[in-house]
Design a protein around this nucleic acid. Structure first.
Length: 346
DNA sequence: AAAGTGCTCAACCGCTGGGGT
DNA sequence: CACCCCAGCGGTTGAGCACTT
């Protein structure tokens, strides 16, 4: 193949390498006016000496108007770590849960920052491409036999059964476990973001049960739960506190093991004893009054502070980063005042 | 100031799977 | 069924930048 040719479009002379502002402008103007349609025709109609594949990549990774820019927040880092635990290197899948971020961005961030830090902390097993300790998450490890998303998260299209209309009763005494709730149940409508609804399952993993995001879990006096029609979905993109709630209560349910992973003071972040936390029975700051998130046993403070420490480590070593403000903890867990905290102030 | 080093990230490459014929 | 086209994905590369010596 001669220089200037792509394998995907070797009939054309195409430019390669970095995009010039003029090329960007042409692409933006074309897509804004006509949409991208078939990518292979975009260069011709946009007047670009690029192949369609390159145009697509440029648009998706750089020019799209809904891209968020700038460094990753601790919440995003936490989310990436959690999702990577479940999904492995499924960057596109992971990126779907990070509005405004691309798979390329997430992948770069993982490879350039998170992975190295975790490896330095002996928290990352490169042969498994995953965290050590994942299998010891709070819930039965058989629920996540591998890092295959399909095992725990079933897109609606793949469901043989429709969303059960009569799914109005959920008894939390049956050990329902959130396999992956990408957003706070009470405030997210997955359909609004083109996301499949989360799958919940019992600890024995039989038939996954779907939860309608537009409904809310209402705690009853006998500790059972029912689902009530929820409010209109909130705009997620401007609501980082919701992500915090998600981080604190959903995926993180199983991830205090991040703390466990650091026992023995491997990271220098903790002393030997992680803080013991207790679920708060009422008055969650992030849940509307009367709502209750299931299985809130995880010391999410531990996890969040771990992530913040991790991010802090990023910041101190990254030439491009800027100092992040401290994150005030506002999740649904409280430290047990009777337990001595094992934290070391970073 | 210059050279060396490390890091980031945009872009490329090769592959896969889906849809159409 | 085979073939082709295309979109999309994950792995990899390398230019450019910042920092260190």
């Amino acid at each position: 193949m001669t220089p200037g040719q792509h394998t995907c479009c070797d009939k054309q002379k195409v430019k390669r390498g970095l995009w010039s502002p003029e090329e960007d402008e042409k692409l933006i103007r074309h897509i804004s006016a006509h949409g991208h349609g078939c990518w292979s025709t975009v260069p011709r109609f946009a007047g670009l000496q690029r192949c369609g594949k390159s145009c697509r990549l440029r648009w998706i990774n750089y020019l799209r108007p809904d891209l968020k820019r700038g460094s990753f927040s601790p919440e995003e880092a936490a989310l990436i770590i959690d999702l990577h635990n479940i999904l492995g290197n499924k960057w596109a899948q992971i990126a779907k849960y990070l509005p405004g971020r691309t798979d390329n961005e997430v992948k770069n961030f993982w490879n350039s920052s998170i992975k190295k830090k975790l490896m330095a902390m002996n928290l990352y097993n490169s042969t498994r491409s995953n965290f050590q300790g994942l299998s010891s998450m709070n819930f039965n490890s058989s629920l996540v036999p591998t890092a295959q998303m399909d095992q725990v998260y079933i897109p609606p299209a793949a469901q043989n059964n429709p969303v059960p209309q009569g799914f109005d009763q959920v008894n939390f005494n049956t050990n329902l476990i959130p396999a992956l709730t990408p957003f706070p149940i009470s405030s997210m409508d997955s359909s609004a973001y083109n996301l499949p609804p989360p799958v919940w399952m019992t600890s024995e993993y039989h038939q996954p049960q779907l939860v309608d995001h537009q409904k809310q879990f209402i705690k009853q006096e006998d500790n059972s739960m029912f689902i009530n029609d929820g409010p209109a979905p909130q705009q997620f993109f401007n609501a980082p506190p919701l992500m915090r709630t998600f981080v604190d209560t959903s995926v993180i349910n199983g991830l205090p093991k991040v703390c466990d992973m650091t026992n023995g003071n491997q990271s220098g972040i903790y002393s030997s004893v992680p803080p013991v936390l207790e679920p708060v029975s009422e008055g969650f700051s992030r849940f509307p009054s009367g709502l209750y998130a299931p299985e809130m046993q995880a010391p999410a403070v531990c996890h969040i502070q771990f992530i913040e420490s991790l991010m802090s480590a990023f910041n101190s070593s990254s030439s491009h980063s800027q100092a992040l403000p401290p994150l005030p903890y506002s999740g649904p867990f409280l430290l047990n005042p009777n337990q001595t905290s094992g934290w070391i102030n970073p």
